[in-house]
Structures are given as structure tokens and as C-alpha cells.
Amino acid sequence: MRLEPKPAPSFAATLLYPLGAVAATLVFTSVLALLAGASPLDVFLLVAKGAAGSQFALMETLTRATPLIFTGLAIAVAFRAKLWNIGAEAQLYMGGVATVVLGTGALPLPAPLLIPILMAASMLAGALLLLGPAFLKTRFGVDEVVTTLLLNFIVLLFVSMLLEGPLKDPMGMGWPQSIKVLPEARLPRIITGRRLHYGFVLAIVASVILWVVMKRTTLGYEMRAVGHNPEASRFAGIPVNSVLMKTALLSGGLAALGGFSEVTGLKGNLTSDLSANFGYTGIVVAMLAMLNPLGVVASAIFVAGIFVGADSMSRAAGVPSYIADVMVAVALLTMVTAIMLTRFRIRWR
């Protein structure tokens, strides 16, 4: 079996293969629904309704999508330069830590000053965290998959330590949580009574800016060139190592903004369950979006919708909400296969 590149993918193929991927995902999850003793059609309808069936549901989905957009962007920019950042989870937490350290009273400033400062501080914290692995990679050839992945556990334990120690809320009834950030640090809600906050708007703005950076700027050009062919880039005079460092700063900063947005927009304080695996799910989001920053918004909303919808479906139909994980995973696999099939044809022997 071998893959032969197709000279030019036909329009029908670019349309049909992704549709086939969606169909395959539905078929596969139908089997699981049947195994759980529910009607597949009911399950899908309940998921759809739970994700977007009402204003409340839609707002919840968008709220859930917000951190995924940030981590998805972080992954998209890093993977574009072939910097395999698996540590968005840790960078997100570092963003949360920076926000709480400075936002709970250390800087008594009005909101228009405080919020930008907290944003900058959290981005810096996330960026610095990824700088270490990037330095080890460029200088000594240490595999960044390993270093960034392991940093996730180190940072999570570090956060637990902070929450049991210096950052612990004395009024928190013993729970490992920080005190709430100042009211001036809070991102306002978009609609009163709903949880959706301006972090979502910030995420959209970030994705548009990143799209412009990738398409129009010399930095975006350098990152894409280095990702596609580092050797040719080096030959052409592109400073490969410095581009990788810049990519790391940008990627770490974007993931950390997710932490900032969750703390100031949603939770109000830092806890050790600030992230529901947003750093890892961000990888799926970025891959589904084919690393396109604007696509990240759509794929983050899609993935968030499945999770939010599956939660409400599981209450109604009695099917475990873990089916959401399977759906997202299968959707990713079939979509990646579909993308490959539009570009290659398989030859058996």
C-alpha cells in the first residue's frame, strides 16, 4: 500500500470527503449509543439541542469555546512552525497564576489599566514557560514534546502547592482556591444573566490578529517557512532558531490568555480545576481547523458544542457523557483522514 499525491484535488472531493467524515463519525457514535441502550437519533438530537437549542445552550457553548479558542490558537501557531507544544495546559495555568498574583489587590488600579496589565502579565508568564523547552530544543536538540508534556504535570503540582500555601484563600473553608480577583479585574458579561463574558470577544480578536500575522507579516512568513522546511529556510537566511523562539513566546502567551480569560471572565479565582483539559483539547481544535486561526474559532465552537450538548444529553437519555470524548476523537480521526484523501490517493500494492 502506498500514497500517491494527486496533482490537484477536485472540488467535489474537497466537499465530499469532509461530509463523509461527519457521516462516519455519526455512524460510529450510533453504535455506541445503541450499546448504551438509547436511540442514536435521540442522542444526536439531544446533543444538538443541548449545544444550540436555546439561547442559554448557545451561550454555554460559546463560554466553553472561549478557552478552547485560546489554546487552539496557541497550538495552531506552534504547530505551523513545527514546534510541538503539548504544554498549553501548563501555559494556561501560568496565565491564571499571573492574573491572580497581580489581580487580587497587589495593583489597586482602575479597570481600563488593570485589565491590560493583567493580560500582559499572564501572556508573559505563559511565554516564559514555553521559552525553556524552546531553548532546549534549539540549543541541544531536546525533544519539545517530552519537555512541554512533562511541564504540564510540574505546573499543575506547582499550582496545587500555591493554592495550599501562599495563594490560599483564608476564607475559603479550607478549599484549595485563591481569593477572588478585584472587581476592577473582572471581564464583564456580554448578556446579563448569562455566563458568556468578554473573554469570548477577546478570543475572536486574537484569532483575527493571528490570522493577519500568519498571512501578511514577515514573522508569519518566517514561521510557515521554518515549519515547512527548516533547512531551506536556513539556507535562505531565515534565522530559524530565533523564529522558533518567537513562535514559542507567541504560542505560550496565547495559551496563557486562556487562563487569564477563565479567571477574570468566568471563575473569578484560581483553582486546580481551572482547565478541563483545555490544553489537550486545544490540539484537537487546532488540527480540526487545519491550523488556520479563523478555523480555530469554528472548530472550538464545534468541539465545545459537543461537550456541552453531551452533558445535557446524558442527563436526558442516560447515555454517559463520555460519548462526547469519543465523538470528538472520532471526528478528528475521520477529518484528518478525509483531508489526507483529498490530497493523496491510496494504491494497494
Binding site: R216, T218, Y221, A225, H228, N229, E231, A232, G237, I238
Partner: peptide
């Protein structure tokens, strides 16, 4: 392997040695 970046376009490839000059970019914008 060295002379070109296969997955980038012809236009992107021909500027690879000169993208920073005033001819192809201003203030970091291509």
C-alpha cells in the same frame, strides 16, 4: 530539500532570500 520550500507557493519561494528588504515588506508587513 534546500533550494525550495515545496509546500509554499512560487511567490513565497522567490522572496525567501529578500523578504525583509523594502522591496517586499514595510514595518514587518509583506
Amino acid at each position: 530539500a534546500v533550494g525550495s520550500i515545496g509546500d509554499m507557493t512560487v511567490a513565497e519561494n522567490v522572496i525567501s532570500e529578500r523578504y525583509r528588504t523594502r522591496r517586499f515588506s514595510r514595518f514587518g508587513f509583506l
